[in-house]
């Protein structure tokens, strides 16, 4: 869209679609659903400071998030998937974005909640940039006691660092397999050369 282009940076466009079969109970969510729109806006806001948009003036980066199956911590999953997708697409970013949902049951904190848990306990989703140790997103729709908040925020940040390790490994192995896929051509040639030498 022309009107959405910026002369100095790329525009980020996020669209989230939640499949009606993604939850236990079939539920049709329309495109204009406020909750889904909010989801998209949250993702957009999270990634805007991380993607180096100034490298692509007058262009647009589309992020399409399709939720096929969900059982809690959906925002967390969306953000982590987006990070990996952007990296996979080779879009320059200043850092990873690692999100995790934390909750607290009476006094014991917990991470990565399921729907069942989300329904019943207060929870907060935190997205961190593990290298710069910056928090890019804190969102909460329930009430959480202020005394518990710090504990859970710290825990979520620690969890972000661990997620980062995991994601880095995934990115590396993906890259390795990509390289491996690209290699056979050269390898095949060299083997041919070998053959020549042996023969």
């Amino acid at each position: 869209m022309r009107s959405h282009t910026f002369h100095d940076r790329a525009n980020i466009n996020v669209e989230v679609v939640v499949a009606s079969f993604s939850t236990g109970e079939r539920r049709k969510r329309l495109r204009g659903d406020k909750r889904v729109l909010e989801f998209a806006a949250t993702i957009k806001a999270t990634f805007e400071p991380v993607i180096r948009t100034s490298l692509y003036p007058r262009s647009q980066i589309d992020i399409y998030v399709q939720v096929l199956q969900q059982d809690g911590s959906t925002l967390q999953a969306c953000i982590n998937a987006t990070t990996l997708a952007l990296i996979n697409a080779g879009i320059p970013m200043t850092d990873f974005v690692c999100a995790v949902t934390g909750g607290v049951h009476s006094t014991s904190p917990m991470l990565d909640l399921t729907t069942l848990e989300e329904n019943d306990i207060p929870h907060v989703t935190v997205a961190v940039m593990p290298k710069t140790k910056k928090v890019v997103l804190v969102t909460m729709e329930t009430r959480l006691h202020v005394d518990r908040f710090e504990e859970i925020l710290n825990l979520a940040r620690d969890a972000g660092a661990i997620l980062h390790q995991e994601m880095k490994e995934a990115v590396l192995s993906r890259s390795a397999s990509l390289i491996a896929m690209a290699e056979p051509v050269t390898k095949g040639q060299s083997r041919a050369d070998d053959d020549v030498i042996v023969d």
């Binding site: 049951h105 009476s106 329904n119 019943d120 306990i121 207060p122 329930t142 009430r143």
Partner: peptide, 9 residues
């Protein structure tokens, strides 16, 4: 069913 004080279900 649940006496968790924050339960909203």
């Amino acid at each position: 069913t649940s006496i968790n004080s924050t339960s909203l279900s």
